[in-house]
Simulated scan of single mutants.
Amino acid sequence: MKDSRLHIAPTKDNSDIPFDLLELADPSRVRINEYLKTGTCYLAKVDSKVIGVLVLHPIDSTSLEIKNIAIDESEQGKGYGKELLGYSELVGRELGFEKLVIGTGNSSIGQLALYQKVGFEMSRIEKDFFINNYPEPIVENGIQCKHMIILEKVLRK
């Protein structure tokens, strides 16, 4: 990784959870609270300012899922998202996971491109995931978010 001012560390307790950032990637506070119960939340800071967030959750003994990843809108396009993805790989390898999994909406064009650029491969589609799990329609890039696209990356040691 390049020399960066980004510092990533797990949250100390649930009092410092940046819900504003988590909600950039997932508009459901209910769903966020559910995966925060069993996942680990990491804060990405530049100097002392929190500019990003990452939540990792073990699916099983071999797979680690990125449940949420977000960068403050004012800091996007600077490579921090790519650094957080790299960090999630490092954590996954250190914990002995074989695979990293991430899901995103069919309308999340930028995220789909980023994940594939860093080596994630499309695995499957969960049809109507966002229609069935979110009360309000989600629209990104002028496209209704209906389906969850699941991508995976093998973590080689």
Rank of each mutant, 00 (worst) to 15 (best):
Met148Ser: 06
Ile17Trp: 00
Glu152Gln: 14
Leu64Ala: 07
Arg93Ala: 13
Leu22Ser: 03
Phe19Ala: 07
His57Met: 13
Arg124Asp: 03
Gly103Thr: 15
Thr38Ile: 11
Val50Ile: 13
Ala70Phe: 00
Val46Met: 06
Gly39Leu: 08
Thr104Met: 01
Ile149Glu: 02
Lys12Gly: 13
Ile66Thr: 00
Val30Ile: 14
Ile125Pro: 10
Tyr80Gln: 11
Val30Phe: 08
Ser15Thr: 15
Thr38Ser: 14
Asp3Glu: 15
Gln111Asp: 09
Leu54Arg: 02
Leu24Tyr: 06
Leu114Ser: 11
Lys78Met: 12
Lys127Tyr: 11
Ser28Phe: 02
Glu98Val: 00
Ala25Pro: 01
Leu151Thr: 10
Gly103Cys: 12
Thr62Ile: 02
Glu23Tyr: 07
Ile109Arg: 11
Arg156Trp: 06
Phe19Leu: 10
Arg156Met: 04
Pro18Ser: 13
Gly103Ser: 12
Lys146Leu: 07
Leu24Cys: 04
Leu155Pro: 01
Glu23Ile: 10
His7Trp: 05
Ser88Asp: 05
Ile69Leu: 03
Ile71Met: 09
Asn33Asp: 13
Tyr35Val: 07
Glu152Gly: 06
Gly119Asn: 08
Pro27Thr: 12
Leu155Gln: 03
Leu24Ser: 03
Phe129Arg: 15
Lys45Glu: 14
Tyr87Ala: 09
Asn33Cys: 15
Lys117Phe: 02
Phe130Met: 13
Phe120Cys: 03
Gly142Asn: 14
Ser107Arg: 01
Arg124Glu: 13
Gly79Cys: 12
Glu136Leu: 07
Val154Leu: 06
Asn14His: 12
Val55Phe: 02
Leu112Phe: 07
Glu140Phe: 04
Tyr87Cys: 08
Ser107Phe: 03
Asp128His: 06
Tyr42Asp: 12
Ala9Gly: 07
Asn132Gln: 14
Glu73Pro: 00
Gly110Val: 09
Arg156Val: 01
Pro135Lys: 15
Leu100Val: 10
Lys146Arg: 15
Lys49His: 14
Lys2Met: 10
Val53Met: 08
Asp3Gly: 13
Ser15Asn: 15
Gly79Tyr: 08
Cys145Gly: 06
Gln76Ser: 11
His147Lys: 10
Thr104Asp: 00
Asn106His: 03
Ser63Ala: 14
